[in-house]
Structure formats: structure tokens, C-alpha cells
Design a binder for these strands. Structure first.
Lengths: 216, 216
DNA sequence: TTGACAACATACTGGGTAGTATGTTCCCTT
DNA sequence: AAGGGAACATACTACCCAGTATGTTGTCAA
């Protein structure tokens, strides 16, 4: 008890910081967000953040990592099920989309992290971390790639380039990141409806036939 | 002659600045881009830019405006043609997507401008300009909205919410903004192939039937 | 030829911010 | 009970950058 209490406390402190940071980075973007902004949202000062993170970039990267981890936790179990590709893909895409909505601030940071690497305006050390995170993201995408290629092989999906199809699929499913806004009393059914529409759109885009798209 | 020469010269200078700015804003994002960055790309100094633009924001907004203007010039003529909605939509989406690829730096600025307004971290004056530009963008989207709703009414498209369908369509068509990279000797055919795949994906997503999607 | 203005370059200022150095409090161990 | 360290807050520094003020050059009109 006395041993687990500190561990729990540390974890919640870290998660508080991560949550506040994710929200700030989403609201203003990485560059325009100051550490003081994050601290203010926590009702604290810089000292608190710099006690737990060595730099602004480190904090951002940890948000990125945390966001990706949540995605893995959501989708990986489904990918490991023994299902026909069309059905598996449907569940994976729907859950991915729901995760985007539910953990929006973190996923916006993942998005910006990907952009950050492509822009390349980083120190060598930062670049190393970003490359590792990018690999994490690539592994995540690979789970989907495998399934859509299986679906294509079995003739239940049709598209030209797997890479482009994958990009388009993620753009559709990630779409709510850029226009959805969380409301205080937001009904879970509304979120589900949004995710459903994005999923249907994505699966149709990938060329799945009507019945494969339709079944929940 | 002596009257048109200065006018032309002024215009090319402005366009030089706009082009360099668009490229810089795309490469590093608005916040992380300094006026010195833009000047350096021009092989000039701050003085040149501040002689033509009152502020960094003004410059950015002009890039935004220029990008949107190019979109109107591309799509408006097609929208005014007398065609069945499915055929019209196909041409509009394809041309829009091509425009995204060809004028990528400007369109990235349009994207960031939209985000900037949503974030709201602006001065009141900047907000007014952004609202005007947003209206411009809304008008542009309205052209597409009208066509996809016509298509839905005529039963050649199917989707639930028009707003969400519109968002998803633009996400698909704008997708190359985020993963396409211009190469020096980039073949026009390659660009066309990319736009084609995005268009097919988007039209399928909107529920257009096979023949409506297929015809070029 | 001159003078007035456009089109810049150069030099400077002020504010904001990342990161650091140092202080303070409280708890936990021994 | 004491002392040592974790978990912060406060105070400070150094740098970057938007914007400005001022200097310089070329051109064109009268």
C-alpha cells in the first residue's frame, strides 16, 4: 500500500501534465504553445513541468507516444481475432475512428508529430525520438495495411495503390480530429453516429461491397 | 507600355513574395516561420517584405486568399456547366484534387488558416480578415455541397449528413496535401494518377454507383 | 540637374519564451 | 528529531523574432 501509493500518485501527476499538454498543443499548436500555457492550465508553474520533463519537445513526444499507445490498445485486440478480412476491417476502422474522437487532443499531437518529422526542423536528438515514434506509427498502419490487402486479395475490396488507399482511409477516419468539437453534455450516441458515417465512407472508398459495409 | 510595365513588375514581385512565403509556411508552419526565413528564401531581407506587407499575418492572409482564388478559378467554370450532377461532381472533384497537388504550398496555408480561425488565437483585426477568408472558403464548399445534394436527391449518391459527407469528401481530395512531395522531374501522368485515385475513393465514399465513378 | 519617391537594405528595440538556478515545503526514513 | 530528498514555486538569463526607424540606391518627371 505504502509502496503502490507513490507509484499511483506519480502516474496521475504525469497524466495530468500529459492531458493538459495535449489540450494546449491541440488548441494552439506546438510552436505557439508555451510551457507557461500548459502550467497555467494545470494551475501550476513551469517548475512543475520541468521537474518531470527535460524539455518542451520531450513533453510533446510523450503525448505523442501516449496517443499511439492508446490506439494500439484499442485496435490490436481486434486485429488478432479470427475473422474474415471485411468484418475485421469494419471493426478496426470503427474503433479507430471512435478512438480519434475520444482521445482527440492526443491524436492531434500525433498528427503534428508526424508533420514535425516531415518538416525536419528538429535537433538530431529530437529527430531520433521522432523516428522511433514514426516507426511506432508505421507499425500501427501496418496492421491496417495487412487487412486491406487481404481484403483486396479475396476480392472484397478494390483499389490501385495500397499506400494511397491506406492514406485515404486514415484521412477519412481521422477526419473528425479537424472538425469535431467536444461538447459538455455530448451524447455517446452522437459520437457513435459520426464514427459510423466516417467508417461507412472509408469502407465504400476502399471498394467494399454493400453488405460488407453495412453490417455493424 | 510604360504604364503596364510597372504594374507587371509589381505583380511579379508580390507573387515572388507570396510564393516564397507559401513555401516557408508549408515547410515550418506559420508560427515557426520567421519573416527572415521568407526573406532568405527570396535572397533578400526583411525590408523587402515589410515594404509590401504590414505584418506577418497580412502576408499569410494574402497567401490564403491567393490559394482560394486559384481554387475558384479552377472549379467555378465547371460548376456552371450544364451537366448531370454525377458527371459534374466527378469533374469538379478531380480538378480540385489536381489543384491541391499543383498549388500545394498555398493550399497548406489555406488549411492552416482555417485552423487558425478555429483556434482563435488572433487579434480582433486578424479575426475579421480570417472570417472574411473563411466566408470565401465556405462559398467554395457551397459549390460542392449543392452538387452532392443534387446527386443525392436524384438518387445517384447516398450519405446521411451533408455536412459530414462534405468534410469527408474534402479530406479525401485534400489528402495529397499531407503526403505528396513534389519531385524535380515529376511526371504529369503521375500527378494525374494520384488525383484519379483520390477522386475515385471520394466518389465511392459518397455512394456514387460504379458507372458514375468510372467515367473520366 | 535636381528632387522626390519607390524599393529596398541595415540597424535597432521591445516583448515573449525556453531553459536554468535557486529557494521552499513537506514527507519519509532511520 | 533530524536530515535528506522529492516536488514543486520563484527569480533570472539569454535568445529569438516581429516590427520600426533610418539609411541607400536607382529612376523618372519637370
Amino acid at each position: 500500500m505504502s509502496a503502490s501509493a507513490p507509484a499511483t500518485a506519480v502516474r496521475t501527476v504525469q497524466e495530468d501534465i500529459l492531458g493538459a499538454a495535449a489540450q494546449c498543443f491541440m488548441d494552439r499548436g506546438y510552436s505557439a504553445t508555451s510551457i507557461d500555457d500548459v502550467a497555467r492550465r494545470l494551475g501550476a508553474t513551469k517548475g512543475r513541468i520541468y521537474h518531470h520533463y527535460r524539455s518542451k519537445a520531450d513533453l510533446f513526444f510523450d503525448v505523442y507516444r501516449h496517443g499511439m499507445q492508446m490506439n494500439f490498445d484499442t485496435v490490436q485486440p481486434i486485429a488478432e481475432l479470427d475473422l474474415p478480412p471485411a468484418r475485421k476491417l469494419r471493426r478496426m476502422t470503427k474503433e479507430h475512428c471512435l478512438a480519434m474522437i475520444r482521445t482527440q487532443p492526443f491524436q492531434r499531437c500525433v498528427w503534428e508529430g508526424v508533420e514535425m518529422l516531415k518538416r525536419g526542423a528538429t535537433t538530431p536528438e529530437q529527430r531520433d525520438v521522432l523516428l522511433e515514434l514514426q516507426a511506432m506509427r508505421d507499425n500501427y498502419a501496418a496492421i491496417f495495411r495487412q487487412v486491406i490487402e487481404q481484403a483486396k486479395t479475396q476480392g472484397v475490396a478494390r483499389f490501385e495503390s495500397s499506400s494511397i488507399a491506406l492514406q485515404l482511409m486514415f484521412m477519412s477516419l481521422n477526419s473528425p480530429l479537424f472538425w469535431y468539437r467536444k461538447r459538455p453534455g455530448q451524447d455517446e450516441a452522437i459520437i457513435n453516429g459520426i464514427a459510423e458515417q466516417c467508417t461507412v465512407y472509408a469502407l465504400r472508398g476502399l471498394g467494399l461491397d454493400k453488405e460488407a459495409v453495412g453490417d455493424g
